[in-house]
Design a protein around this nucleic acid. Sequence first.
DNA 1: TGTCAACAGATTGTCGACAATCCCGGCGAC
DNA 2: GTCGCCGGGATTGTCGACAATCTGTTGACA
Lengths: 215, 215
Amino acid sequence: MTRPAPASKPRISASEIAGAIVRAIESGELHPGERLVEADLCLRFGTGRQAVREALQQLKAAGVVEIVPNRGAHILAISAEQAILTLEVTELLFGLAARSAARRIVAGADASSLERAVAELEACRDAGDAASYMHARRHLFGALAHIAANPELTRSLDQARVHVMRGQFGFAMMRGEHAGELAQVGKLVLSGHAAEAEVAARAYVERIRHRLETP
Amino acid sequence: MTRPAPASKPRISASEIAGAIVRAIESGELHPGERLVEADLCLRFGTGRQAVREALQQLKAAGVVEIVPNRGAHILAISAEQAILTLEVTELLFGLAARSAARRIVAGADASSLERAVAELEACRDAGDAASYMHARRHLFGALAHIAANPELTRSLDQARVHVMRGQFGFAMMRGEHAGELAQVGKLVLSGHAAEAEVAARAYVERIRHRLETP
DNA sequence: TGTCAACAGATTGTCGACAATCCCGGCGAC
DNA sequence: GTCGCCGGGATTGTCGACAATCTGTTGACA
């Protein structure tokens, strides 16, 4: 190899910028309605405007921002009604992910990532702050999608997840009981009970949705 | 208004380029594995390279093309196994679209677009070629998504639809019997039978999936 | 005082050019 | 005959600059 390592060029790609923006929204650093000015993002990530523009296009496709011609991008607010609609989709996708992953584990797929995610969830079930719960939940979703090995499901779930995790309603999903529920879903998947895992996964999402419907 | 009409600026946007490429793949004009060279697309659509690059980014996010650094984009092939996995997701989404649309119609939503789509499907059920069937099916999907009024569902369904429609397996879905099945789904939605419409919608997708599983 | 028009600043949309990288052919050495 | 090396051509990645557009403000006028 002529080149020693790709680390010699740590340039940030468009996808990484998009991910960083999403995490900033999740953490409350950026809030809905706020404008995303290209020049600011260039300074923030130390990259050119082209990469920033591509990142904004990706976020637009994911429904995170809206881009109006000649006026730039701003973070979309999500109403409670829209969040409920999104969770209707998430319920189906998460259920399918749990069912497929359970079947794949029965078929001998590698379950180590899911085991780690479940352990992480149980660790923050009792004494966990919001950030660690979000981190653990992200791990669980990622592990399920990875094990399910369904590219289309992974993509849809990723976008739906991104869509709901936005600041406004994040607080409604950061309770310790939810960490326990999610860990239970992971355990059912690990034990290979596909149907029960799907039911538990859908019930988890449905409970969050009901909490939004009746505040 | 100082500006008479937006028609004075008929510049093609990135989304339109992406849509045109997808339709070209559907129609067989472009086939999986083919490279998409930026300069060629610029000449084809008469636009700059930036718009083409944004379109390719959108197609990458939708899973239609793969972009490898410094080597450009090429159309992804989809194996029968991947098509089956995609249809697992489509089955859920299409079922939800049918159920939600039926409920919204009961609640008084405008059904004219769906009525037109059903009429179009019935017209090409008997003596319809592949192109008109594809057109009618696109209309039905669009009408259901519009009536369901769930942005997240619309986005997911749109991407999943794009993903499956690619050339290789298009032929497997162009039979007259399918037009009749789809028309039946539309009629059930129009009559407001949410549960039955969902069952019919899922059965429609499942049948296609089974045909792929057992050739 | 209220309203409208023009101006200034800021931001986005687009184009062209250059550097970096990769594929593909030939060429020489073993 | 096969392997490794290396230019040539083609293509992508990135940067800078300019034009087009929008927002907010200022000022004149009824």
